[in-house]
Each structure stands twice: as C-alpha cells, then as structure tokens.
C-alpha cells in the first residue's frame, strides 16, 4: 500500500477521531501509534480531532440549554443534562453564588474517565438442554447486542428477565446495553444489581462498568466506592481498579 493510499484509508476509517475519542481497540490503537509516531500528517490529524473535541466541549458549556436537533439526540445527551440540572438546583437552593455553581458541575476530567472503548464480549455457549422461553429471548437479545443494536437488546433482555432468565448475566448485559446505548444511569443501576447478588463470574466486571457508568454521570465518590466494594480475584483486574481509583482521585483533586 502506498503512503497516499494508506492515508486515504486512515481518513476514511476516521482513525485520528477514534483515537482521540477512545473508540479504538487496543491492537488497532497500537498499530496507529506505531504509524503516526513518524507521520506528521497523522499527528496533525490527531491534534485537529482534539481541537474539535475541545471546541465542542467549550461550546456545549456555553449553550447547555440549546434545543436538540431531534428527540433521539436529546435522549443521547439526557444523562449529562439531568445531572447538571440537579447540581445547579442544589447549589441555588443552598444560596451559592453563580461561580459556585460552575465549580459544582461534574468535572470533565471525571466524566472523561467513564469512557469505555468496547462493549463486554458475549460468547454464547451451547448446552444440551431444552431452552426455556426466557433463554430463547436472551439468545435473541444477545444477537442484537452483538450487532450493536443496544436499545433493542435492552428491551429483549428486560423481557427475558421478566420471563425468568437467570438475572446475573441478563442484568449484566442490560447494563452493558444501557451503557453503550447512552444511558449511564440505567447502566449503573443494572451493574449494581449484579454486584449486589454476590460472588459470580460477572461481579468483577460489573464493578468496573458500574464505576465507569457512575463516572460518566460525574459521581466520582460513588464510583470509587463501587471499585472498593470487593477486591477482584484477578490481580490484573485489581491493578485496573487501583489505577482507575487513583485517576479519579487525581481528577477530583484538580
């Protein structure tokens, strides 16, 4: 592949944007870094993507009440808006000055820590038994989940839960679907249910994603508490918990 063609691919695949927004899986990110470390054009693309993101953030902060283009877009932004409204309301009730309201808003440094690159993987395992109605609904919903149709998957999983499907995996993937569907509040609630059900193969990851969802909402203290609720059995997971906890504390301190 010539350099020109490879850059055409890089632009079409929006690699710089995905790198900046954290949408790039690890191996792809490393391959992109391997390339751009010697590529002025791609470094510039990364800076441009960062500038766009920063400008959008600044513009959004100035016009938080702007009417959304569509109801769907409004729902995508709803968690952040609701959270801001709560903080502002609380500060006004306490008689704080306007400047205090600004400080009370969830910090971008905290909400950025709630980023998740890839949805938790689902690997269905065939078993020799007659699948019940709930299990069949679960399987159907997970097909939607695996293809990124998170809103449909959420509805299907909730129906499977109501039909008696095992609540731990079902709630876990409801949480994942909500998280990737843009509703961090519902996601945090679903992951919290998984954690509250005690030790299971899903508990460590549920803690992790619950913390991520809470961070997206700017609820840093609750995120730290979620990570501290149980020590993961896997040392690597423990290191991730520790690193994220440390990052949250530093973000709050800033």
């Amino acid at each position: 592949m010539t350099e020109e063609r490879s850059h055409q691919f890089i632009h079409e695949a929006e690699l710089a944007e995905r790198y900046v927004t954290g949408r790039m899986p690890g191996p792809e990110r490393m391959a992109f870094e391997d390339h751009f470390v010697t590529c002025a054009e791609c470094q510039r693309d990364v800076r441009f993507a960062s500038a766009v993101r920063a400008a959008l953030e600044a513009t959004g902060a100035r016009t938080p009440s702007r009417t959304p283009a569509t109801p769907a877009a409004a729902s995508a932004r709803a968690p952040r808006r609701r959270q801001r409204a709560l903080w502002v309301g609380a500060a006004m009730a306490a008689g704080f000055a306007g400047i205090a309201v600004l400080y009370a808003l969830p910090s971008r440094a905290v909400t950025a820590l709630g980023g998740v690159e890839q949805p938790p993987a689902y690997v269905g395992v065939a078993v020799r038994s007659t699948a019940g109605r709930g299990a069949a609904m679960f399987d159907d919903a997970m097909k939607d989940y695996s293809t990124g149709r998170y809103a449909v998957a959420t509805r299907g999983l909730q129906a499977a839960l109501a039909a008696g499907q095992d609540s731990i995996p079902t709630d876990f993937f409801i949480g994942a679907s909500e998280l990737f569907g843009g509703d961090a509040r519902n996601a945090a609630a679903a992951f919290a249910r998984v954690v509250s059900l005690g030790e299971s193969p899903y508990r460590d990851e549920a803690q992790w994603y619950e913390a991520k969802a809470l961070l997206r909402l700017g609820r840093s203290a609750e995120a730290i508490a979620a990570l501290a609720a149980y020590a993961p059995a896997d040392p690597a997971m423990g290191a991730r918990f520790a690193a994220l906890t440390d990052s949250v504390k530093q973000a709050v301190a800033r």
Partner: peptide
C-alpha cells in the same frame, strides 16, 4: 500507580485522559 509494569497497566489507563491532547493545539487553532 500500578502494582507492576505490564501491558495491562498501560492498557488500564490508556483512555482515561483523551482531552489532554487538546493542550497540544495552539491557542490560535
């Protein structure tokens, strides 16, 4: 900040602060 130097350690924090890159843009940009 992490228990050991592993790829996992790097991976664990890799997406935590994407907005820091914006500091590399010139003010005029």
């Amino acid at each position: 900040r992490v228990a050991s130097m592993t790829t996992t350690a790097y991976e664990a924090v890799r997406d935590d602060r994407p907005d820091a890159l914006a500091t590399l843009c010139a003010d005029e940009q």
